[in-house]
Simulated assay, not measured.
Amino acid sequence: MMDTVLITGGTGLVGRALTDFLLDRGYQVIIFSRHKAASNHPRLRYALWDPARKTLDVTALQEADIIVHLAGANVADGRWTKARKQEIVDSRVQSSQLLFDQLRDQPNKVRKVISASATGYYGEFKDHAFTENDPPATDFLGATCKAWEDSVQQIATLGKKVVILRCGLVMSLQGGALREYYKPVKLGFAVAMGNGEQWVSWIHLQDVVRLYYNAIVNDQLSGAYNAVSPFPVTNQHLVQSLAKAAKGKSFINVHAPAFALKLALGEMSVEVLKSMKASSAKILQTGFQFSYPTIDEATQQLVRDQQ
């Protein structure tokens, strides 16, 4: 009998791709959603939960063997107003707290909880690639990721294994930041953010999904791992690779000035302009192999898939 995997945030970019991957391999999948939804797959169903109201479908929780916790408001949707920042934090911490409370209070057979986090945990890259032992940044995203991870880690006190994947920029043209970079590329412009020299730690969507699957099946994994390709690139290199894959040599390099980004994005511009290099050494040491380790392999596959 295959495990039942309960996914929170299952309707997002990573959640949809992971759901398809697991269904293809014979798993039962339950997705926690705040809205009623019907499934047309015999091994997929939706169950209701509402972290803000501290309610969830206990039956669904009791059916689960493994929880993949992806829930959280999209960081890049809209300016970081005070209310928006509170929503970004609450959507992560309240949902993790609800899982902890219910796993503590209800009989269940959950063995493992695998949670999303982000490389926003770390500060500005100076001289070394961040490892999982580095302290969190003190800025908004660093504090958010720390609170998020702490709220998940308490589940380990219930005797359950906890794995946390600190994800870099997810390479997909189906959603996320890369789709925004791709819009001007289609018109022939490779638009670098600021001077374009800031480092970007990235990962192909298919490798993100394979990492979550690896965490499901590999019981040796425990604690935090950077979910990033072994080869980070500069922002300019990233957009040029995307442009080359889509347009060959017929594109124009453009820079979006830092001051314009600050006007357009407000505080969120800090993240777009931040130089961030995270090390994938820890996950590589477990034997995991990336399908798309280099940026050119990743962008060529993504553009090919679009055509």
Rank of each mutant, 00 (worst) to 15 (best):
L169D: 03
V208F: 02
G176N: 05
F189E: 04
D219K: 15
G168Q: 01
L173P: 02
G194V: 04
W202L: 06
V217W: 06
K183C: 00
S201F: 00
G168Y: 04
Q174R: 03
L211S: 09
Y182F: 15
G175M: 09
L187Q: 05
E197I: 05
L221F: 09
S201L: 07
A190H: 08
A192Y: 02
Q174E: 11
M171F: 10
C167G: 04
I164W: 03
L169N: 13
N195R: 02
N218S: 07
G194M: 02
N214T: 12
Y181V: 00
S172P: 05
A177K: 00
V191E: 02
D219F: 14
A190F: 06
K186Q: 11
W199G: 04
N214L: 15
Q206F: 01
N195T: 08
S172I: 01
A215D: 13
W199N: 07
M171N: 01
Y182M: 04
V163H: 08
V208Q: 02
A177M: 11
A177C: 06
S222I: 12
V191M: 01
L178V: 11
L165Y: 04
F189N: 01
C167H: 09
M193D: 01
K186D: 10
R210Q: 14
L187M: 11
Y213E: 03
K161I: 09
M171E: 13
G168E: 05
H204W: 11
R166P: 06
L173N: 12
I164D: 04
K161L: 07
V162Y: 12
V185L: 02
Y213A: 09
M193P: 01
M171T: 03
C167E: 06
A215R: 09
K161R: 11
N195Q: 13
I203D: 04
L173V: 10
N214A: 15
I203G: 03
E180A: 07
A177Q: 03
G175E: 03
F189R: 07
I203C: 13
L221Q: 14
D207T: 12
V217N: 13
L169I: 11
G168P: 10
L211P: 10
Y212C: 13
S201V: 06
K186G: 01
V191D: 05
S222L: 05
A192L: 05
A192R: 04
